[in-house]
Amino acid sequence: MITRSNRKWIACCCAALVLVVITFTPLVIPYGIYKPMLWGIPYTLWTGVFCTIAFVILTLIATRVHPARENEAVKQ
């Protein structure tokens, strides 16, 4: 049975997968292009930083919706 917690966890995994795919497309690493710059920072660097932050935020969300979290809470 797929619970609400499971659905959220699966959604997180899908989001992480999409993020991985996006990271390795020209959307983040266009060949030889470094503009538009953000506060003087080249394009691939600032988009790369955003991707890393997005991964960490997704990880944070994933820890909150992981299906085993409920069992852990019961144990405690």
């Binding site: 992480a16 691939t44 790369g48 991707c51 890393t52 991964f55 997704l58 990880t59 994933a62």
Partner: peptide, 28 residues
Amino acid sequence: GIAAWIFLAVSDGGMVFLIVWFGYHLRK
């Protein structure tokens, strides 16, 4: 150049996400 960020930092971002999944199964 700056794509070294993708090489290490983005990979580390993916890695910490994987820990959530793998850590659970390993500990189990």
